[in-house]
């Protein structure tokens, strides 16, 4: 299976089960995980990959990931540090993986979008513009996941 555009990407993600969405979401986050140094985020990704996780463990992971997200917001009026902001969006992506499902929502799509924002922020921080290959990388990750 080959995916090379967002329309096919989204359609394929919608066809996954909730468990499948969570697993592939975790892979999207892992692709940008180097942009965040918070152990809580790593723990959230690990939680997303566990199929035997209990509701209590999941709730604790959600709370922990939310803290990582809140801790990394850029405050109003503060100069944005785009590297740190990249880390914030990684935390948001990790949170998207594990938070309770919303009607009509898709955890994997949300995680993918946050991961792209993270990569864009990192590109701005590096002074190399805003274009990057994160979307293409995600197409590849999803194709590999579905072909297994």
């Amino acid at each position: 299976m080959t995916i090379d555009n967002d329309s096919d990407f989204k359609t394929a993600l919608d066809e996954l089960s909730r468990a499948g969405q969570r697993l592939v979401a975790a892979r999207f986050v892992e692709n940008v995980l180097a942009l965040n140094q918070d152990a809580k985020v790593t723990a959230a990704v690990s939680a997303a990959k566990r199929t035997d996780i209990t509701e209590d463990e999941l709730a604790a992971a959600v709370q922990s990931a939310r803290k990582a997200s809140v801790d990394s917001f850029t405050q109003c009026g503060h100069e944005c540090d785009w590297s740190k902001q990249a880390g914030h969006f990684v935390a948001e992506a990790a949170l998207a993986c594990i938070k309770p499902a919303e009607p009509g929502g898709n955890a994997a799509w949300d995680a993918a979008m946050h991961a792209r924002m993270a990569r864009t922020c990192k590109s701005i921080a590096a002074g190399v513009g805003t274009d990057n290959d994160e979307a293409a990388a995600q197409y590849g990750i999803l194709a590999e996941f579905m072909n297994k």
């Binding site: 967002d6 329309s7 850029t74 109003c76 009026g77 503060h78 100069e79 944005c80 979008m113 792209r116 924002m117 864009t120 701005i124 513009g129 805003t130 979307a135």
Partner: peptide
């Protein structure tokens, strides 16, 4: 911008929203 946001960052968000919403 009080937070140092320049137009390219806005344009990046525009592209992001385009991808997200079509």
């Amino acid at each position: 911008s009080p937070m140092g946001v320049r137009l390219p960052a806005v344009q990046a968000q525009m592209k992001h929203v385009h991808a997200d919403t079509g």
